[in-house]
Amino acid sequence: MADVGVVAPNSVVASETDVPAIIFDRVGVAYGHGKKTTHALVDLNLRVAVGETVALLGPSGSGKSTALNALAGFVRPTSGRVRLAGRDVTDLPPAKRGIGVVLQSYALFPHMRVSDNVAFGLKSQRVPRGEIADRVAEALDMVGMGDYGKRLPRELSGGQQQRVAIARALAIRPRVLLLDEPLAALDARLRQSMLAELQRLKEALPDTAMLYVTHDQAEALALADRIVVMNDARLMDVDTAENLWRRPPTSFTAAFLGGANLIPCTVGRVIGTSALVTIAHKTVSAEAPQPRTGKVDWAPGSRALLCIRPHALQIVGLGNRDALRANVNATVWRGATTRVVLSVGGMPDQLIEVDAPGNAKFEIGAEIGVRIPEPAGVLVRIPT
């Protein structure tokens, strides 16, 4: 797999900021031997720039937490090297890497007061005693917990404990901050509040690189400068959140990030990055992106997948001349929208999902019309 990451500007002498904060160089992690070998991470190549926030996004077992643990030093790679600011840290213990780590479980010491929890890393680094109190106060103030230093963790809410865990990671002034599912244990309201806090924190730490592990795409879209989509222990795609949303390179990313409809189609005429495609005997226009590396030939007559987000489709009357005829299979009210699952005539065994505004009422089995936007969406290669 080609190296994926930030390309430094051309210069004769590279500045400190040109050196990536994080480099995964063909990193692999495996457990067991022979036929019983389990690959938890395969050939990961990734670079994260100074000050950049990168989200590792994927389902359970995709390898995202293993990548973070390999960077933190909690697991030893079986292949490849890990570098921080150009320094090979593959063989260094976690305490020697100078990384701030925030875990889903918070991992606060229950017998220590908040200030002592935050001071723990500073004491481990043998920071002079006279500096510790100021550093602890600075870190707690940064997360809005300056008045809670004398409390025990059990006297705090889940959101407050998470803030303390972040303060403890920030107290050592790390150049790299790792966050492993930091909001997963919080309820929906606290999660939104903490997400806003993390966005503010990101702005306040312009020189700190962050690696954020999550399975929640909303968190990744809100926080990340780039998103790394992972599956089956491998990096699938990496790009800015906007690019991955608008032009997903693979069917996995299209479906996982935003739950897109992937509708089989036949490619017709192609002009530049636009194509005419046929679905269910209807011809529509679509975006036909070219990859950054290599050339994809959307040849006339070839088969592809048309990626259309559920919110882009519209339910209309059967009399609408642009409508495809469809039958309602299921509906799920989601508050602001109703997700309607449809089977479309001319597309056997293919279900599509449409988001209708409000608490729309449709009878199961009812025949309705669905209108495809123009342009319809973006072409995605059928996986081989």
Results as ranks from 00 to 15, higher is better:
His281Gly: 11
Met236Leu: 01
Gln192Cys: 01
Ala220Phe: 00
Pro249Asn: 07
Lys282Glu: 08
Val277His: 07
Tyr212Trp: 03
Asp232Met: 02
Met210Arg: 02
Gly259Arg: 13
Val228Arg: 02
Met230Val: 03
Thr273Glu: 15
Leu183Lys: 07
Lys202Cys: 04
Val270Gln: 09
Leu183Glu: 10
Pro182Arg: 01
Arg226Leu: 06
Ile271Glu: 14
Asp216Tyr: 07
Arg234Gln: 14
Gly258Tyr: 01
Cys265Asn: 12
Ala233Cys: 07
Ala204Lys: 14
Leu211Gly: 08
Met194Thr: 05
Leu235Asn: 13
Leu179Gly: 09
Ala220Glu: 06
Met230Asp: 07
Ala260Ser: 15
Ala196Tyr: 03
Leu198Arg: 07
Glu197Trp: 06
Thr214Leu: 05
Arg200Thr: 07
Asp180Ile: 07
Ile279Thr: 13
Arg247Tyr: 07
Ala241Arg: 06
Thr278Gly: 08
Leu186Met: 10
Thr208Ala: 09
His215Trp: 05
Ala254Asp: 05
Met230Ala: 09
Thr266Phe: 00
Thr283Pro: 09
Ala254Tyr: 04
Ala275Lys: 01
Leu190Arg: 13
Ala185Gly: 06
Asn261Trp: 02
Lys202Ala: 02
Pro206Ser: 01
Asp216Glu: 11
Val267Ala: 13
Phe256Ser: 11
Glu242Arg: 09
Asn243Ala: 14
Ala188Val: 13
Trp245Phe: 15
Ala188Ile: 04
Arg234Gly: 05
Arg200Glu: 09
Asp237Pro: 12
Ala204Phe: 00
Glu203Gly: 00
Pro182Ala: 03
Ala260Tyr: 06
Ala196Val: 01
Ala218Cys: 00
Ala254Val: 11
Val267Ser: 11
Leu183Gly: 08
Val213Pro: 09
Met210Cys: 07
Val277Cys: 04
Trp245Gly: 10
Gly268Arg: 01
Arg191Met: 10
Leu211Tyr: 01
Val267Tyr: 07
Asp216Ala: 04
Glu203Ser: 04
Pro182Thr: 04
His215Tyr: 02
Phe256Arg: 10
Gly272Gln: 09
Asp187Tyr: 13
Ala260Pro: 11
Gln217Pro: 11
Ala275Ser: 03
Val270Pro: 10
Thr240Trp: 06
Leu276Pro: 00
Thr253Tyr: 08
Ala218Pro: 00
Arg269Met: 09
Pro206Asn: 11
Ile279Asp: 03
Arg234Asn: 11
Ala185Pro: 09
Ala222Trp: 06
Val270Met: 11
Leu195Ile: 00
Ser274Ile: 02
Leu276Glu: 15
Ala218Gly: 01
Leu221Cys: 09
Asp207Thr: 08
Gly259Trp: 13
Cys265Leu: 04
Leu276Val: 11
Ala224Trp: 04
Ala222Ile: 02
Asp180Ser: 10
Phe256Asn: 09
Trp245Ile: 11
Ala233Asn: 10
Val213Gly: 08
Arg269Pro: 02
Ala188Met: 12
Val229Met: 00
Gln217Arg: 11
Gln217Trp: 08
